[in-house]
Nucleic acid binder design. Sequence first.
DNA 1: CTGTTGAGGATTGTTGAACAATACCTTAGC
DNA 2: GCTAAGGTATTGTTCAACAATCCTCAACAG
Lengths: 214, 214
Amino acid sequence: MARSTAQRVAMALRERIEGGELPPGTQLSEEALGRDLEVSRNTLREAFRLLIHESLVEHLLNRGVFVRVPTAADVTDVYRMRTALETAGVRAAATAPAPLRAAVAASVDEGERAAAEGDWRQVGSADLRFHRALAALAGSPRIDAAMDRLMAELRLAFHAMPSPHRFHQPFLQRNRVLAGLLEGNESARAEAELITYLDDARELILDAMREAGR
Amino acid sequence: MARSTAQRVAMALRERIEGGELPPGTQLSEEALGRDLEVSRNTLREAFRLLIHESLVEHLLNRGVFVRVPTAADVTDVYRMRTALETAGVRAAATAPAPLRAAVAASVDEGERAAAEGDWRQVGSADLRFHRALAALAGSPRIDAAMDRLMAELRLAFHAMPSPHRFHQPFLQRNRVLAGLLEGNESARAEAELITYLDDARELILDAMREAGR
DNA sequence: CTGTTGAGGATTGTTGAACAATACCTTAGC
DNA sequence: GCTAAGGTATTGTTCAACAATCCTCAACAG
C-alpha cells in the first residue's frame, strides 16, 4: 500500500470524471460514493480535497462537492494563464535542455501519427502533451504543475463540446510549424505565432460552448 | 458562522506560521494542535488540506504535516514562475483597466511612505503588493491566485533571512522606475527591467540563504 | 397567479472514540 | 560502533452519533 486510501479513491474519481461517467455538474454524494467505493465519509472527504486542488471539483459549504462546470469566463481565463506559461517556455526554448526540446518534437510526431491512424482521442491527448511540453521548456516544476491543472480544467470544458476531435485536427499543422520555429531558434516568431494560435483556439472553444447552449 | 470550522482553524494556523510562531520545519502534531485549538482531529486534518493547497505546509505519508522549509531550488523555481506571471502582467499593462494600473502606482507610494516612517515591515508587504499588482494587470483570477501562493511561499523563505527589511529597501527605487515605465506605456523596456530586477532579487535571497547556512 | 412562509426531510459539518498501520526510539546482541 | 528486534508514539481510517444547514414542497396571503 504505497499510496493512502484517500489517494486511491481520488484516482478512481478522477478516472470517472475524465471518462465522462461523472459529467460536469454532478453532485458527489458522500453517502452514495462512500458506499460505492467502500470507504468512510471522512476518507472520502480527504479524497475530495485532492480533487479540489486539481480544480476538477468544487466545494460549496453545506451543499457538497460537484464536478466543475467550466463557464466561458473560465475558459477565457485558462487561456490567459496558459499564454503566460507557454510563452515563458517558448522564450526559454533556446537555452532549454535537449530532452525537453526533444519532448516537444516527439509530441508533434505522436499527434500526426495518431491522426494518420484516425485515433482522434490520441490526437487530442497528444495536443495537450504538446502544449505541456512547450511550458515545460521553462524548466520549472511549479509551471509544470500549474499546466497540469489547467489542462485538467480544459478537458472538463471539452466535455461540453460535440466533437472534440474536429477541434484538434486543424492545429496539427500549426503544432508542426511552431516546433519548426523552435528548432530554428526563432523564439520571437514562435512566440508571436503561439499567441495568435492560442487566441484562435480559445475562440473555437467559446463558439462551441455557445452552440452547445452554455 | 460564515466560515466553516476548518477554515477558521486554517486561518489561525496561517497567522501562527506567518507570524513566526510556527517556524519552518515545525511538525504540526494533530493531537497537540487539536487540544490547543479545541477541534477534533478530523477537522484539523481538513484544515491541513487547505494549508497544503497554499503550500504553507507539506504532508508526508504516515509522518504528518510540517511547516515547509523552502530550499534554494524552491526559491529559484518560485522566481521562474513569478517572472512568467509578472511579465504577462506587464505586457498587458497598456490595455489594462485603469483601477489595476492605479493599484500598481498606489503600492509604490505605500512602500515609499512606509520607508519614510521607518516601518520596514510595511515596506516588505508593500513590495509584495507591488508585484502582485503587476501580475494582476493581466486581469486573470487564476494568475492572481497563483501569485498569492508564490508570495506566501516567499514569505516562508524570508523567515530564513536575518533582516528582511534590508532586503526590500534597495528595490523601492526600482519599483518607482518600473511604475514610471508602465505609466509611459513603455512595455518592452519595463519587461526587460523587470526580468533583471527579479534576477537580482533572487540572487540576494539565495546569498542570504547560503549565509544562514541552508 | 405570484410570491412568501414554514415545517419536514435530506445532506453536509463536526465530534469523539476506537483500532490498524507506520515510523521513530530504545535496547539487546554481536 | 553497527545491526536487529521490540516497544511506543503518531498518523491513517473507520464508525456512529449529533448539530447545522440547505432544499423541497405544501399551505397561505396578497
